[in-house]
Design a binder for these strands. Sequence first.
DNA 1: AGCATGACGATCT
DNA 2: GAGATCGCCATGC
Length: 112
Amino acid sequence: MSQQHYQRIWQTVLQIPAGKVASYGQIADLAGLPGRARLVGKALGYAPEQLAVPWFRVLRSDRSLAFAPGSDTANLQRQLLLAEGVLLKNNRVQQQDIWQPDLAELLFKLRY
DNA sequence: AGCATGACGATCT
DNA sequence: GAGATCGCCATGC
């Protein structure tokens, strides 16, 4: 897949504010890539460290973490979210912690 | 080209 | 909510 798509995904994820989370599908939609939720996960895995993309603020549409419960990655994600005040209950975040961006403002910042 | 594999998602039970 | 099923799309063998 093109770097262009990855770039858009990374830039979109960078817009998620601390203390909020978004789903893979939501990010795909906002990045102008509807139907490609799976590509978002892949892009996050390739994200350069230097860009400091908040990958831990992205999870599934059912509000559960994508990594196996108990795995090192899942534990790390849980810790990073907790540090921002996002508490997981039974591997799920609260509905209120889901990011609901102002579309006009977001599109302006991303200027697609 | 065919098939399996995912940091996924919507829908039904 | 949990589990099963099917759809989706990019990748790699």
